[in-house]
Structures are given as C-alpha cells and as structure tokens.
C-alpha cells in the first residue's frame, strides 16, 4: 500500500473504498464497447486500477456509456442508471456522447448525453484507446477525492429537469419517477414551486443574480 495515502485512508475511508473498487456495468452501447474487452482482460487489465466489469447494474457503481446513443438505447440507459446504487459515476466514452460525434445529424441518435443523465466526465476521441480509460479512471479518483464526482447528487436534485428532458425525447415513460420531480424544474414557469419547496434555492438564485 502507498504509505503516502495512509492518512487519506484513515480520514476518508469510504472515499478511498469507492475509488479503488469501481465496478463497471458491462453495458454495450454503440461501437465503443469494442475497446472494453481488451481493457478488462489480460492485455490492459483494468483490475490493476480496481475496475471490474459486473454483469448487473445493481452491483455496479461505474457506468461507461461507450459510443453513440440511439433513442431506443437511451431508454435502456436510463433504466440501468436508475437501478445502480449510489454513489454511482458516469463516464461518457467517445465523442458521440459529447455532441453526437459523427452521428450529429442522425435521425435517431440523441446528441448530448448529459441532457438526459448526469455525466461525471468524458473521454474524448473516436475511439479512445484503452489507455484513455485508465487516464479517465485516475481523473475520476481525483474527482471523488474532491467530492466533484457528484453526478448522482445532481440527478437527485435536478430530477424534474432530467425527467422532463427524457420525456421530451422518449414520450411518456413507463416507469414511475425515481425521485420527487417538483424540487427543481428546468423551465422558468416552475420557479414558484421550486422556491416554495426549497427555501435554500432562492438564496442561491439571489446569489447568482447578484453575481
């Protein structure tokens, strides 16, 4: 064990445990998944970094969205993401998750993934090499250390806005809302409800206006 990290282990054991046991849900979207089998097997051996592929989202805390996301896949992604226990981290893999990539004008691929589920980080490239996954993992460690990998908290907080966006593309969803949706809404007309529900929001918004 790295002796320099001993104090971290004593002070924040949960964070350290989360960092070094990233269980990636083995969910294949698009072409990027072709990089994942060599990454998790002997050639690059992601287990050196504590990354293991799991078969079910209920055992996973890392979600790699590997490649373009079609509308049909988005439905599965949301269901998978909502089944994962917290804390959970999402990494968009490849340029398609950032802005659509080469499928930016397709009739059937959503372009920006972070409109529908929160994303903690992106790996740019088409395709990124397996080494890029490890760079992303080490970045994710830093983010977890600094409490910046908070996508699951943002999802809980802005669930109304995320759910509204999901319904804009997928139509009516056949599963019930995961969280109460009225806490924060993305559109302007929901402002009054939001302020009534959480007074702290108004203070923050005032700060934003002053700034």
């Amino acid at each position: 064990m790295d002796r320099n990290q001993l104090m971290k282990w004593i002070k924040t054991p949960t964070k350290m445990a989360h960092k070094y046991s990233l269980n990636a849900v083995y969910f294949c979207t698009g072409c990027g998944i072709i990089e994942v089998p060599p990454t998790i097997t002997t050639r690059w051996d992601a287990e050196r970094f504590g990354v293991v592929a799991t078969a079910t989202p209920r055992h996973a805390n890392l979600f790699l969205i590997t490649g373009y996301v079609s509308v049909k896949t988005l439905r599965a992604i949301i269901r998978t993401y909502e089944q994962m226990p917290e804390p959970k981290y999402t990494v968009g893999f490849g340029s398609c998750t950032i802005n659509g990539g080469m499928y930016w004008d397709s009739y059937n691929t959503i372009n920006q993934l972070d409109k529908y589920i929160p994303v903690d980080g992106y790996i740019a490239g088409c395709m990124p090499r397996p080494e890029a996954i490890f760079i992303a993992v080490t970045h994710l460690w830093t983010l977890i250390d600094k409490d910046m990998a908070d996508g699951y908290k943002r999802y809980r907080k802005n669930y109304g806005a995320y759910r509204a966006n999901q319904e804009m593309v997928l139509g009516e969803l056949e599963w019930p809302p995961l969280f109460p949706t009225e806490i924060h809404t993305n559109t302007g007309e929901g402002e009054t409800d939001a302020t009534a529900a959480t007074p702290t929001m108004t203070e923050r918004e005032k700060d934003d206006e002053l700034a």
Binding site: G100, W104, D105, S106, Y107, T109, I110, N111, Q112, D114, K115, Y116, P118, R154, N158, A161, Y162, N165, M168, V169, H184, N186, T187, R204
Partner: peptide, 15 residues
C-alpha cells in the same frame, strides 16, 4: 429533424 427534436431539449442547469 435533429434541430426540432434533439437540439430542442434544454440542457439541465448545473451549478
């Protein structure tokens, strides 16, 4: 179509 359907979806406000 992309402009009407996918680009119309607003980004989620993040602080």
């Amino acid at each position: 179509y992309v402009a009407d359907v996918f680009d119309r979806v607003p980004p989620v406000e993040e602080e």
